[in-house]
Design a protein around this nucleic acid. Structure first.
Length: 285
DNA sequence: ACTGGATCCTGACTGC
DNA sequence: TGCAGTCAGGATCCAG
C-alpha cells in the first residue's frame, strides 16, 4: 500500500500524461469495491470533460476536471494506476478503465479491492468524500503544539497515533516505523507521554524521511509500482521496517519486531529504549 | 471519547 | 505437490 511518498510519486507521474487530456469514456468491472461506484456522477461530471490538474490530498489522488468536479481515487493497499493502449486486453483485477483522447487508457488495478473511486462534486462538502482529515506532514499546521494538543491524555502507542489519519495524513505502517527510529523514540510510547522536543523531532524527521522516499520514487514492496510501471528503491534505504534480526544501521544491535494495534512494528531496542524502562509485548512465534 | 481487535479481499509465502 | 495457516502498504466498524 502506497503511503504518502508513493501517492505523491504516482501523482507526479500521472500529471504530464493526464493534464489537458479529455476522458472519452469509462468502463468498470462488476466486482464490488470498498465503496459503490458513482456511475451517475462519472457520466455527468467526468465523461467528455478535460482534466485540468492532478494533485494529492492525503493519500487520495484527485483529477480535477473542467466541470469543477474531481475524480478521487484511493489506492488502498494494492491499487495501481497505469496507461495502456486501448486495444490491450484488460488484466485480472482491472476494475476501472478511462479512455483518453490520445488513444491510451488509464487503468485502475486493485487486487484486494480496498481502494475506492469517488467524485467530488462542485460545491460539495469535502468531508463527505475525504472524512475528517488531519494536516499533511508538510503543512505548517503539523507542528508541536498541534500534536501535543491532540495527544493529550492519549494512551495509544505513538506509532498508531501517527498512522491515524484524523491526526496526520499520509503516514502509514512503513514510514511510521522509520520516522520513529530516526527520532529515537520507542513506537510503543503512549502518545500522551511525549514532550514538545520529541514532537519536534517527529515533525522534522517525518519531513526528512518522506522527502527522501519521494526522491527515491517511493518504497517497493511486492505490489507497488509507479504510474510508469517503475519500482521505487527506497526499500534499500529502510532502516528498520522488515528488518527484524538485522543490525540497526546506527548501533548494530538486532532490530526487533512487535505488533502494535495489530500491525507489524520495527524498532531498535538500543536506539529506541522502552518508555520508562518498561517492556513491550514481544512478537509471538 | 478511546482503545484494541475484527473485518473487507486476494495472493504470496511458510511449514508440515 | 498439496493443504492449512499466516501475513501484507489502509481504513472502518464494533464492543467494551
Amino acid at each position: 500500500m502506497p503511503e504518502l511518498p508513493e501517492v505523491e510519486v504516482i501523482c507526479r507521474g500521472l500529471a504530464p500524461n493526464l493534464v489537458g487530456r479529455k476522458i472519452i469514456s469509462a468502463s468498470f468491472s462488476n466486482e464490488k469495491m470498498r465503496l459503490p461506484l458513482p456511475n451517475r456522477q462519472i457520466s455527468k461530471l467526468v465523461i467528455g470533460r478535460e482534466i485540468t490538474l492532478v494533485r494529492r490530498l492525503a493519500k487520495f489522488i484527485l483529477l480535477d476536471m473542467d466541470s469543477s468536479a474531481s475524480l478521487v481515487i484511493h489506492l488502498g493497499m494494492t491499487g495501481r494506476l497505469n496507461f495502456f493502449p486501448a486495444a490491450t486486453a484488460a488484466a485480472k483485477h482491472d476494475h476501472a478503465r478511462w479512455l483518453l483522447d490520445n488513444g491510451l487508457e488509464l487503468r485502475f488495478n486493485d487486487t484486494r479491492r480496498f481502494g475506492s473511486i469517488q467524485v467530488l462534486e462542485p460545491g460539495a462538502n469535502p468531508l463527505e468524500v475525504f472524512g475528517e482529515l488531519g494536516p499533511d506532514p508538510f503543512w505548517p499546521e503539523f507542528n508541536a503544539d498541534y500534536l501535543a494538543g491532540r495527544a493529550k491524555g492519549r494512551t495509544v502507542p505513538v506509532k498508531n497515533f501517527l498512522m491515524d489519519y484524523n491526526v496526520v495524513t499520509g503516514i502509514g505502517n512503513i514510514y511510521a516505523s522509520e520516522i520513529l527510529h530516526t527520532s529515537r523514540i520507542n513506537p510503543a510510547t503512549p502518545a500522551g507521554q511525549l514532550r514538545a522536543l520529541e514532537w519536534q523531532k517527529i515533525i522534522t524527521n517525518s519531513r526528512l524521511v518522506l522527502e527522501a522516499a519521494i526522491a527515491c520514487g517511493g518504497t517497493t514492496i511486492s505490489d507497488y509500482v509507479n504510474s510508469r510501471g517503475e519500482k521505487g528503491y527506497f526499500q534499500t534505504r529502510l532502516q528498520v521496517y522488515g528488518r527484524e534480526g538485522e543490525a540497526c544501521p546506527t548501533c548494530r544491535k538486532a532490530i526487533r519486531q512487535v505488533r502494535l494495534g495489530g500491525r507489524a512494528s520495527f524498532y531498535c531496542p538500543s536506539c529506541q529504549p522502552e518508555p520508562g524502562g518498561g517492556k513491550t509485548t514481544r512478537k509471538r512465534r
